[in-house]
């Protein structure tokens, strides 16, 4: 029994991690006041580029780095359109997703039947020998550790540093931030780029570690879930983690239910993670006060610098 539960929990971590990366990235982007709806596209491009790089070079780590460059590059494209040329953020984001789906399918043509070696988990000395907890927390694959580190770093950055303060200020009122001498466009570029790199990393985790395979449109809507998670977590990193692992958990549990041969169509069961995540987050984020306090007030509105 313990064995099954540990198995489910470990699988949950794995299933939630792509969302952790992508959602934390989008959170930073949105905190700067930019709404990038292209997460799905950036994840796919990150996944396929990372997979291709790893397959060609034989190094998973090279693949991971390339996926971040690819995701970041897509985001910069979005940044040029919306920040430099002031294009509509919603339209540009949707276009980015469509572009990402098509391009990733094209790049991935030659890699659909390639498999990659597994990444070995890092066994932390001594700690990993603790029963149950040792396996759950101290013998995970390195990218999961990286996702924990990113969560800690982003929380610290947002709420404890001047840089985080400036980011939140830019997202709330770019006009005021400029009058205090902060460079709104440059800060937004950085935030958008970071969001793209993180989305690419999330895609890479899917393709390099979680499956590890390349399949067309393998993100299966996780990019959209990431967008919803940011909103329903009321732009707070800790709730992003809750939402991401909830999604991962329900994904795994419904697999098990399917395995037991319960008489529910599998198509219905596979909608469960999406439904459950949204439902729970809607319920915990009903307080309009926390929304007003945490939502970036200028989200989605282009900023026109004064002449």
């Amino acid at each position: 029994m313990t064995e099954t539960i540990v198995g489910i929990l470990l699988a949950t971590l794995g299933a939630g991690t792509p969302l952790v990366f992508a959602t934390l990235g989008e959170l930073i982007t949105e905190k700067s006041g930019v709404l990038n709806l292209g997460v799905e596209g950036m994840m796919l491009i990150g996944a396929v580029c990372g997979f291709a790089a790893a397959a060609e070079s034989g190094s998973l780590w090279f693949g991971v780095v390339i996926s971040m460059f690819a995701g970041g590059g897509m985001a910069l494209l979005f940044g040029i359109l919306t920040l430099t040329f002031q294009a509509n953020q919603v339209a540009a984001g949707l276009a980015l997703t469509i572009f990402g789906i098509g391009t990733s399918a094209y790049i991935g043509l030659d890699y659909t039947s390639v498999t990659l070696p597994n990444i070995d988990p890092i066994q932390l000395p001594f700690l990993s020998d603790i029963p149950v907890i040792g396996r759950l927390l101290f013998s995970l694959d390195p990218l999961i550790y990286l996702s924990f580190a990113m969560f800690g770093a982003i929380s610290w950055f947002l709420y404890r540093t001047k840089g985080g303060l400036v980011l939140r200020a830019v997202g709330e009122s770019p006009e005021s931030a400029v009058s205090l001498g902060h460079h709104v466009i440059a800060i937004r570029y950085l935030a958008v780029w970071f969001g793209g790199a993180m989305a690419g990393l999330g895609g890479a985790y899917l393709a390099l570690v979680y499956t590890p395979l390349w399949v067309e449109e393998m993100t299966a809507g996780r990019g959209w879930i990431a967008l919803a998670l940011v909103v329903f977590s009321t732009w707070r990193p800790s709730r992003v983690m809750v939402g991401a692992y909830l999604f991962g958990g329900v994904t795994i549990v419904q697999f098990h239910i399917q395995g037991f041969g319960v008489d529910i169509p599998s198509q219905l069961l596979s909608t469960l993670p999406y439904l459950a995540t949204i439902l729970v987050l809607v319920l915990i984020s009903r307080d309009i006060h926390t929304i007003r306090l945490n939502a970036p007030a200028s989200l989605g509105k282009p900023y026109h610098p004064d002449l």
Partner: peptide, 17 residues
């Protein structure tokens, strides 16, 4: 028109400038 940020504290607003 004040260049203040409503969701931040007084000290944070001042730190930004």
């Amino acid at each position: 028109h004040f260049s203040l940020f409503e969701t931040l504290t007084v000290a944070q607003n001042i730190a930004l400038g």
